[in-house]
């Protein structure tokens, strides 16, 4: 029983860590967006305001996939272990 609970907790933590690998995507995407924005401002400094606003918008949209991963990692860390342990205890007691 203790072993099973230990495995559940360990795998939940591992899954959370693996879910956050998705953070690579938004990192690359936002880096590209900001690099392009810097280039654009360097070329045309007068449209700095519009470029910055558009860049922030694009960054926010690119961030979404990373946030999905974060939500899943959060659920795996704080919600899933309790649920899984409850299920385990229920099945064990029903089995006798």
């Amino acid at each position: 029983m203790e072993l099973a609970i230990g495995i559940i907790l360990g795998l939940c933590a591992l899954g959370a860590g693996m879910a956050m690998i998705a953070g690579i995507g938004p990192g690359i995407g936002e880096g590209n967006a900001v690099a392009s924005a810097c280039e654009a401002i360097g070329r045309q400094p007068e449209c700095r305001g519009a470029v910055t606003t558009t860049m922030l918008m694009g960054c926010a949209v690119a961030e979404t996939t990373g946030l999905y991963a974060f939500v899943i990692a959060f659920l795996l860390l704080f919600v899933a272990p309790g649920r899984f342990v409850n299920i385990l205890v229920d099945t064990m007691s029903s089995l006798g």
């Binding site: 926010a60 961030e63 979404t64 946030l67 999905y68 974060f70 939500v71 959060f74």
Partner: peptide, 15 residues
């Protein structure tokens, strides 16, 4: 995606 974006950003900052 709109809901998750806003909520995720604020919550991740807190965490």
């Amino acid at each position: 995606s709109m809901a998750f974006r806003h909520y995720g950003n604020v919550l991740s900052g807190t965490v």
